[in-house]
Nucleic acid binder design. Structure first.
Lengths: 346, 346
DNA sequence: TTGTATGCGTTATCAC
DNA sequence: GTGATAACGCATACAA
């Protein structure tokens, strides 16, 4: 009984040594051929390739990674993919990575931060793209144990400790609000994620809500915040009921700025149920420009991020960082574009 | 100058041996502690854990994988994630895998089949879930080199060479068509992916279109197939224009069955633009029950797959197969449910 | 309960 | 251009 033969289950995989023996060369030579190394005679290269093909040999990436320290894996930290925005982001990232022969390891942000750090440590991945830790980024950076691990952030925030792509919604949001003001709208409210009781908490968000507040103050208007519950389920009847309650109790604003398109969709449904006409009685704008927005009747306005560009840039930054760890900090600001549709037209 | 110290770039990672030395034990003991092995004295366990924590030690999964042959990685082969159906599928799979400590490696089906096979071979992953090779499954199975690698399919088709979850749309689709017939609709057409010139090619699809054809024949109705171009972009103005052309040229059917919800959305837009009233003049049903369907005015009917259930089952099958490679073939059929909304109500 | 020897499949390094 | 040797970091098998 030969030892180490694993006769119990399936056969051993064919290794580089097997190929070497069959081809009458050394493992090193096979290795060189598999990596496309130049200094091998055409004769041996051809033979090795032929034999490897016949034996159905595949390089064991695990073993290679152990010695080279490079895995060809990029970890992507994202929010739940049932949110179309993040699904689209991951989609474009995947296309970028695949074009360079990398594969993606998907990680959700609802794991413990320590667990996230752990999953990406110890040369298990060549780099990290963080696209969904808004609000917990500082905490995450603090817990990172391997500072040298390449890491790029995609975020509405900007910060000084890491490479990042910043998405700046301020110009587009300002433009939308100005459109409403120009159209003579008097009562412009913001619908964001928060609670109806303490809607002002949402202003702690560095990004969109504060832009709204600034614009309101600049125009001398009253700030009106409508908070809807955060919800893992995209489809939330409770949200719609809450919105209808709000509009029935407080009357309806004549301009509504929504944190993102799903909320805009819920608002649309609530308004439609109550018989309000868009845009005659209420103007409406969302954010992210999800595909369905333009199909609604009337077509709903939104703010479109150039996702392909964002992801290409993030991947470029990460590749640069991998190639040159000591590169100075890289950053870029992307400015999304307001898509004006009927819901914003006077 | 000490050899192997890599002074050029960052310091070496702390290994199991470093921890062992610092804790005054052997590497083996540290290994046992890290794996939660029972037969270690509480004293040493505690000390090792403390030291490991202080030294910020993390198990190198690559090295572990090399010797155990298990990576904790599951490959998932899917269509592009900008399609909400697949994004939702991946979402639920991710939740399942993460709950068991596995991570997901994302692979897109538009790579070469050989490339897919290659990426999952050689013990690089513990198992595979295939969720988007419809129509190329046979070819994929033929090219698999490592038959023993656990692999589960999620598919509208059923087959005998591998474990699978089959999604059977026939009952729900039949129900929708019967609703239209009962409502007195005379001209019921199917809108699928194909070409306007050769729409009958879509009947080659084993699933939904053939169900439609069967029901039409059973009812003695004429089969009317409307083909829209396949499109990587979800948002396709060309499709809408083509649909409007079709309806203007041929008149509009009074019942429309759509291959999936995006097509239903495009049809909705085309009908709305042309002034047709839903459901009075045209009844409409889609497939996949994407979240926006119920928000459209009027709310659009669809067919809802129980995605959480599907993914839980697929993951269960895969785990079973991993644990017992010689298990008999596993299969299950899931029956989605028709969501009747205003677009189907007489 | 703990330690010793050995191998997992590959590549880096230095010879030849 | 090719080969020999020694790691990479960890776990299995067995001994103590």
């Amino acid at each position: 009984m030969r030892p180490h033969q694993k006769e119990d289950s399936r056969l051993k995989n064919v290794t580089i040594v097997d190929v070497a023996e069959a081809a009458g060369v050394t493992a090193m030579t096979v290795s060189r051929v598999m990596k496309g190394y130049k200094h091998v005679s055409p004769k041996t290269r051809e033979k090795v390739l032929r034999v490897a093909g016949e034996m159905n040999y595949t390089v064991n990436m695990t073993a290679r990674a152990l010695v080279t320290g490079q895995t060809g894996i990029i970890a992507v930290i994202t929010e739940h993919l049932n949110h179309p925005y993040f699904a689209n982001l991951i989609h474009h990232l995947e296309l970028q990575l695949a074009s360079q022969g990398y594969v993606m390891r998907l990680l959700y942000t609802d794991e413990e931060l320590d667990s996230l750090v752990h999953s990406t440590k110890s040369s298990a991945v060549d780099g990290i793209i963080v696209a969904g830790l808004h609000g917990r980024v500082q905490e995450y950076l603090r817990r990172r144990t391997d500072e040298s691990q390449p890491c790029v952030f995609i975020s509405p925030e900007s910060f000084s400790e890491a490479d990042y792509i910043r998405i700046d919604f301020r110009p587009a949001l300002t433009e939308a609000i100005q459109l409403m003001i120009t159209a003579g709208r008097k009562r412009i409210a913001y619908v964001g994620i928060g609670t109806l009781d303490f809607p002002h908490q949402m202003l702690h968000w560095e990004g969109r809500p504060s832009t709204y507040r600034d614009e309101m103050e600049k125009a001398g208007r009253r700030v009106e915040l409508i908070g809807v519950n955060p919800s893992i389920e995209i489809d939330s009847p409770a949200r719609i009921e809450a919105l209808k309650d709000y509009f029935q109790t407080n009357g309806c604003p004549d301009g509504l700025v929504c944190f993102h398109d799903e909320i805009a969709l819920h608002v649309f449904r609530a308004l439609t149920d109550l018989g309000y006409r868009i845009p005659d009685e209420v103007m409406l704008v969302g954010c992210d420009d999800l595909p369905f927005m333009k199909f609604i009747e009337p077509p709903l306005s939104s703010i479109a991020e150039p996702m392909a560009e964002i992801c290409a840039l993030a991947w470029k930054f990460l590749q640069m960082r991998i190639a040159a760890p000591d590169l100075p900090l890289q950053c870029a600001t992307i400015t999304p574009q307001l898509m004006v549709r009927k819901s914003l037209l006077a």
